[in-house]
């Protein structure tokens, strides 16, 4: 008899475990299109959102918004997905997209795992202003103006041109082939840039900044990093002019890069270099309470 009771309890426990190991996923899908005209700007304000912005050749902004709720109980997930509010409308020349959670009076807080997912297609010359609070954003192929304000949100950019302005806190930036007037103001954000060209101005605090490669179109690169570590990898380091300063930090560079020390004390290290060329990009890096590393090759694996 005891054996049966024990087996019954074990079975019940197993069923209970099995029930909680499966989640019901309710997806509420919304679609909307806006005719695009010059001077329009797309404004997205995401919260716990995965945002994907792509370009196409239609004069139209197409939005697909998915609101997702996950919970072991299907009815709970269905109720909670409706607690994610959204806005998708045009006001004058701005197209606003937004999601947020608003709890009505007397309404219970959601208990499901909730998420918003945007897939937006815009003409490549459409200016975009994206704000994201938690979540991930990926943007590609824009060529006019892109602004990003992120908190606890990662941003990935590829093949962007034009005026690019990023302001992040507790996030991560990954960019490849970004060309133009690029300004970054970051705090507690790790930055990874590849194939940079144009003019870069980066202010970084508490982060790890990696330049993985430089393209021919680089005009100048200015980095002001505090309590951060800076890595610059490029196979043609000798082709650029440098003005490097480290306060309470070290400057590491290849031996064949004949940097001239203007100052070399325990507290401050300052070096310059000018290549044997008439025109060259200027790289100015200033680091305080951190080190900078100039290397010809980036490590193929592992952390650096």
């Amino acid at each position: 008899m005891k054996l049966y009771i024990t087996m019954g309890l074990l079975l019940a426990a197993f069923i209970g475990t099995a029930q909680t190991s499966k989640l019901h996923v309710i997806t509420k899908r919304l679609e909307k299109s806006f005719p695009y005209r010059d001077q329009y700007e797309l404004n997205i304000e995401g919260e716990k959102a995965d945002v994907l912005i792509e370009t196409w050749d239609k004069p139209e902004i197409a939005v697909e918004l998915e609101l997702i709720a996950r919970h072991p109980d299907r009815a709970t997930a269905e109720a909670d997905v409706e607690k994610i509010r959204y806005i998708a409308k045009r006001i004058k020349n701005k197209i606003y997209l937004r999601n947020y959670i608003s709890i009505k009076e007397g309404e219970e807080k959601p208990v499901s795992n909730l998420q918003a997912r945007y897939t937006v297609r815009v003409p490549e010359n459409c200016p975009v202003y994206l704000k994201n609070y938690f979540g991930v954003a990926n943007v590609a192929n824009l060529n006019n103006r892109f602004r990003f304000r992120g908190e606890f949100s990662n941003i990935g950019m590829e093949n962007l041109r034009g005026d690019i302005d990023l302001d992040t806190r507790f996030g991560e930036i990954q960019a490849k082939a970004v060309d133009g007037q690029v300004a970054m103001d970051t705090r507690r954000t790790d930055i990874s840039l590849e194939q940079i060209s144009g003019s870069y101005d980066i202010q970084a605090l508490y982060g790890k900044l990696r330049i993985l490669s430089i393209s021919e179109g680089l005009l100048d690169l200015n980095i002001n990093a505090e309590k951060s570590e800076v890595f610059l990898f490029d196979s043609q380091l000798l082709e650029y002019g440098y003005s490097l300063t480290a306060q309470h930090g070290q400057i590491y560079f290849p031996s064949d890069l004949k940097l001239e020390f203007l100052k070399n004390t325990e507290e401050v290290k300052k070096v310059t270099f000018q290549p044997q060329r008439e025109y060259y990009p200027n790289i100015t890096i200033s680091v305080s309470f951190g080190d900078m590393h100039l290397r010809k090759e980036k490590p193929t694996s592992g952390r650096y």
């Binding site: 190991s21 309710i26 899908r29 919304l30 679609e31 909307k32």
Partner: peptide, 18 residues
């Protein structure tokens, strides 16, 4: 008109391991 076209919501359901 983008002002008049209301968002049409459709719903999907699936399951996944927790």
């Amino acid at each position: 008109s983008d002002h008049n076209t209301a968002l049409q919501a459709s719903y999907g359901h699936s399951t996944e391991p927790a």
